[in-house]
Nucleic acid binder design. Structure first.
Lengths: 195, 195
DNA sequence: CCTACCGATCGGTAGG
DNA sequence: CCTACCGATCGGTAGG
């Protein structure tokens, strides 16, 4: 029905405006009045499209978690080397950080404002993803592709190394998306020092 | 006077409890009642020691900024190679993240809740530090010590690569502070891939 | 250091 | 989709 379609669109608009506000001010400092202003509604009208502030956060967090896990599944199924697998995941992180406004919320700390049982559920998904990422790193160390680092340290260093992108990479930047991925991957895989 | 000494101590206790709460819940989600509970006072009694919630944030942010700039000054004065300078700064970041509870607030995004003119002032200090860090990276590229990466990309990658430490490095961990610094520095300078 | 309390703002609902 | 409004909670003050 047309009404359903329209509602869906509006809900999507609200969600994206919310993601932008959560990124800029944080979840707690974003009021429903702020969000309403951003989509040119009164606060009470938001509730025709969403059921609560937390629902927005929850949807954003879990949608992103599912997307990352789906890519992990794909990467695991390939017969690529550990190096190629890590690079593929890094590219996913970089690409998402620069292209999807909602990903920042899900990965740069706002998920902690989820209440139970969502908080535990989200943390479990996150831990699952991290564990599988770490397994790839461990396989790479065993195969001799990677240096003999502590896998957990490597995992979290890679993870957070790309966390600045969301507020640095603006459309106006001279560097292209591909060049950015190449530089960051290169830096993390080869290091800053010259060979 | 004894009273002054006592007040100072209590103020320090409040500040540390605040830093812990800001880290765990974020600045906005931390209420003065939360903070009062943490130091076993009523909310109104906090105001005998501090003048506002934002004052605590402001003090934490600027104190950390000054400390980082002071170390930058020291590092710049040495005649060390770019590699040694970058390592010294990385060690500062790693050490601070694991040892000083207040540093998280200043560097992991809570500073954005400062109001003007403090916000602009803090951002200027931050930009100053980043510019000087980037100059060291540029010198290292010119001298041939570093790969020919985009300096800004290298800067922010190093910067955020250590941002996970504050919630991972707990006293119970088996890895020592020195080993941690060595591993993270090694990873960022040499990369994950084997030579 | 506390009790008592302030106006402002919060997320959300009622009712049309 | 709006006006009108709810109880709860916010940062902070008065006064002792």
């Amino acid at each position: 029905m047309a009404t359903t379609e329209k509602n869906k669109t509006k809900k999507q608009l609200i969600r994206e405006a919310a993601a932008r506000l959560f990124r800029d001010k944080g979840y707690s400092a974003t009021s429903m009045r702020d969000l309403a202003d951003a989509v040119h509604l009164k606060a009470s009208s938001l509730y025709n499209h969403i059921s609560s502030k937390e629902e927005i956060l929850k949807d954003i967090c879990f949608e992103n978690a599912q997307r990352f896990l789906a890519t992990m599944e794909e990467v695991e199924r390939t017969q690529a080397s550990a190096t190629e697998k890590v690079k593929a995941l890094l590219r996913l992180h970089i690409h998402t950080a620069t292209e999807d406004i909602t990903s920042v919320t899900a990965f740069n700390d706002e998920w902690r404002h989820l209440s139970e049982p969502y908080l535990s559920e989200f943390k479990a998904l996150r831990k699952n993803y991290e564990g599988r990422f770490q397994a790839i790193i461990e396989a790479g160390i065993r195969s001799g592709e990677f240096q003999a680092v502590e896998p957990a340290i490597a995992l979290y260093t890679l993870f957070s190394a790309v966390r600045w992108l969301y507020d640095w990479y603006k459309p106006g930047k001279k560097i292209g998306a591909e060049a950015l991925e190449k530089q960051v991957c290169g830096l993390l895989m080869q290091g800053l020092g010259r060979k």
